Computed example of a mutant assay.
Amino acid sequence: MKNLTLVAFVLVTLSTGSLAKNKHFYADVQVTDISPTSDFIWKRANQNTPKYPIELARSGIRGCAVLSFDISESGETENVEIISSVPKKHLGKYSRKMLKKWKWVPVSAVEFTSEKRTLRLDFCMGEESTEQSQQACKQQTQLACG
């Protein structure tokens, strides 16, 4: 089974589009490592939760993206490739943009080599609570992405 490395919850206030003004939606962005699943050389430098892109939240877009990328010897995210995305047009684009900004630090002081990674980002929203969003993402991660 995939190794869950990070779960993030963000309260998103939406005030445009077909959604009611000032209505609160609870959004969850879940990051799951696909490869490798352990023995990482690098970890994210900024452990703050990934933010649900406001453009996606305003449109009510939910789904997932699987991305492959390299972490350079200097801890930069490089060569980001979208393997699959549902819905392809939106989540792949925003996931790639988000991932390109991530910086990485070595897990141990001994290793400073590059690393190839594949991960899955799940974007889930719920109207009632943070718990509802979390549960929706747990269910979503069991589904194929693409």
Rank of each mutant, 00 (worst) to 15 (best):
Phe9Thr: 06
Thr113Leu: 13
Ser95Asn: 05
Thr77Leu: 07
Lys23Gln: 13
Pro50Arg: 03
Lys100Ile: 12
Val7Phe: 00
Ala144Val: 06
Val7Thr: 11
Leu56Asp: 07
Val107Tyr: 10
Ile71Leu: 08
Thr5Phe: 00
Gly75Ile: 07
Arg117Lys: 14
Leu14Phe: 00
Leu67Thr: 06
Gly92Asn: 06
Ile41Trp: 09
Met1Pro: 06
Val66Ile: 15
Leu91Ile: 15
Leu6Gly: 03
Phe40Val: 03
Asp39Asn: 15
Ile71Thr: 06
Thr49Trp: 03
Gly146Gln: 05
Val12Gln: 14
Asn46Leu: 13
Val10Asn: 14
Lys2Pro: 05
Arg120Glu: 12
Ser84Met: 06
Ser74Gly: 06
Phe9Asp: 12
Met98Trp: 04
Arg96Gly: 04
Lys138Gly: 02
Val80Gln: 05
Gln30Glu: 08
Gln134Leu: 12
Asp33Asn: 11
Gln135Tyr: 04
Glu76Arg: 14
Leu4Cys: 01
Ser18Gly: 08
Gln135Trp: 05
Val80Asp: 03
Ala8Ile: 01
Glu131His: 09
Cys64His: 01
Asp39Ala: 12
Lys88Ala: 12
Val105Met: 14
Gly146Lys: 04
Asn79Asp: 14
Gly146Trp: 04
Ser85Asn: 02
Phe69Met: 11
Ser72Ile: 08
Asp122Lys: 01
Phe9Cys: 03
Gln139Ala: 12
Lys101Asn: 14
Ser108Cys: 10
Gly63Asn: 04
Leu14Glu: 02
Thr77Arg: 03
Lys103Leu: 14
Leu19Phe: 10
Gln140Arg: 15
Leu143Gly: 04
Thr130Lys: 08
Ser18Thr: 10
Ser68His: 10
Ser72Gln: 11
Leu19Ser: 04
Val105Pro: 01
Cys124Asp: 03
Thr16Cys: 08
Gln30Lys: 10
Arg44Leu: 14
Ala109Leu: 14
Lys103Val: 07
Val86Cys: 03
Ala144Tyr: 07
Ser133Met: 05
Lys2Phe: 09
Ala8Trp: 01
Glu78Phe: 01
Arg120Tyr: 07
Thr77Gly: 04
Lys2Arg: 10
Met125Glu: 02
Arg117Gln: 13
